[in-house]
Structure formats: C-alpha cells, structure tokens
Simulated assay, not measured.
Amino acid sequence: MPLSLAHIALIVRDYDEAIAWFTGVLGFTLVADEYQPEQDKRWVLVAPPGAGPGAATLLLARAASPEQEAFIGNQAGGRVFLFLKTDDFDRDYAAYRARGLRFVRPPAEHPYGKVAVFEDLYGNLWDLVELASTGCVSASASRP
C-alpha cells in the first residue's frame, strides 16, 4: 500500500495573519478554512500554487498553549524546515523578492540544484530550490 504525507502542521500565532502571508506573499492557495467549535479552533490548509490533487498541504495550527507558542518560528531548531520546489528558480526568486520575501542566504548553485534560503513570517527557514535533473538533495543541503 503506498503512503504519502497528507499535511504538515506549522504552528502559527494567528490564523488570519498566516493565511494573508501564505496566500499574499508565497501565492499559496487556501484549500480549507473550517471552524471546529468542539475544539474552538480552525482547520486551515494552504498549498503551493499548482499543487495537484493529493499533494501535501500545510496545516496552519494556531498555538494553543504557552509551550506551543515557544515554537512559533523555530519548529526545526534553527535548521531549514521546509523545501519549496520550483521548476524555474530565477522566475520565482525574482517574484518573491518583489513581494518582500526576506532571503537570509543568497542563491547558490550546488550539484543537486539551485537554492536560496528564506524566512517565513515567523522566522522558520525554508529552501526555495530548483532541483537538478537527478532530483536528489544531498545531505549537505541547506545547513545553517
């Protein structure tokens, strides 16, 4: 039986600011925004532009305790947390810079492809990456 990732939870401070940032800056699509009264929370899913049916989505999960709040912006302990794959690095890098996306490491060419590191609205690190034809990201990719 094949398995795949369905959702990746990203702890956020506020649903609406996170939706605005992901849809406005990254151009993601809002897939779901449903209130769950029994838990007093929302089920908010966003997906990268062009993501097909069945593709993994981000679950924007509002921190529900001080312990969870402590992880906003640092879900991977300072390492790159998520990898946003593109088919045209230069196009998307330019578009994101024009939208004010903050890149913390400039574009670099590696055997596995072209990559630059950016921060999301909370400070989590992401790679924008166009993979080389091998499609393999080496173990040395995106070390802080």
Rank of each mutant, 00 (worst) to 15 (best):
A139R: 11
L58T: 04
R79I: 01
Q36R: 10
A94D: 11
F103H: 09
F89K: 01
D88K: 01
V115R: 14
C136H: 06
D92I: 03
V46I: 07
A6P: 02
R99A: 15
P53G: 15
G50W: 12
L26N: 07
P111V: 08
W126M: 03
Q39E: 09
G24V: 14
G73N: 08
A139H: 09
H110I: 00
R13I: 00
A64E: 15
A6F: 06
R13G: 15
F83N: 15
P107A: 10
A55K: 04
Q68Y: 10
R99V: 09
E38N: 09
A51G: 15
R62S: 05
D16G: 03
L10A: 03
P53M: 08
E67D: 15
L10T: 05
R99M: 11
G73V: 04
C136L: 09
D90V: 00
P49M: 05
A20L: 12
Y96F: 15
G24W: 14
L58S: 04
G77Q: 09
L128D: 04
A18S: 15
N74I: 00
P49G: 05
L59I: 01
T23C: 13
A64R: 15
P49V: 03
P48R: 11
P37T: 09
S142Q: 02
E69P: 08
T134K: 07
P2F: 11
W43Q: 08
G100T: 11
G52C: 04
D88V: 01
Q36T: 00
G135M: 04
F81Y: 14
G135Q: 03
G73A: 11
A55N: 14
E130M: 12
E17V: 11
R13Y: 00
Y93C: 01
G113K: 03
T134C: 10
D87M: 07
L125D: 05
L59E: 11
Y93A: 03
F89I: 00
D90G: 04
E109K: 04
L84M: 14
R62A: 07
L101M: 10
E17D: 13
L59P: 05
R62V: 12
F71Q: 14
F118R: 02
E34C: 01
P66A: 12
N124V: 13
R105F: 01
G54P: 12
T57L: 06
P53L: 10
R105Q: 13
G54I: 11
E119Q: 15
K41V: 06
A18Y: 08
E67T: 14
D14F: 05
M1R: 02
Y15M: 05
S138A: 10
I72H: 04
G52F: 00
G78W: 10
R97A: 07
H110F: 08
V137P: 07
C136A: 11
Y96R: 11
F103Y: 10
Y15K: 05
E130R: 06
D92F: 13
N74T: 02
Q75K: 01
Q68R: 15
A55L: 08
D127E: 15
R13D: 14
R105C: 06
R105T: 12
D88G: 11
P2N: 07
V137S: 14
Y35P: 03
A18M: 10
E67V: 14
Y122K: 00
Y96E: 05
G123V: 04
L128I: 05
L128K: 07
S4N: 09
H110R: 13
Q68D: 15
S140Y: 01
A116S: 09
R42K: 06
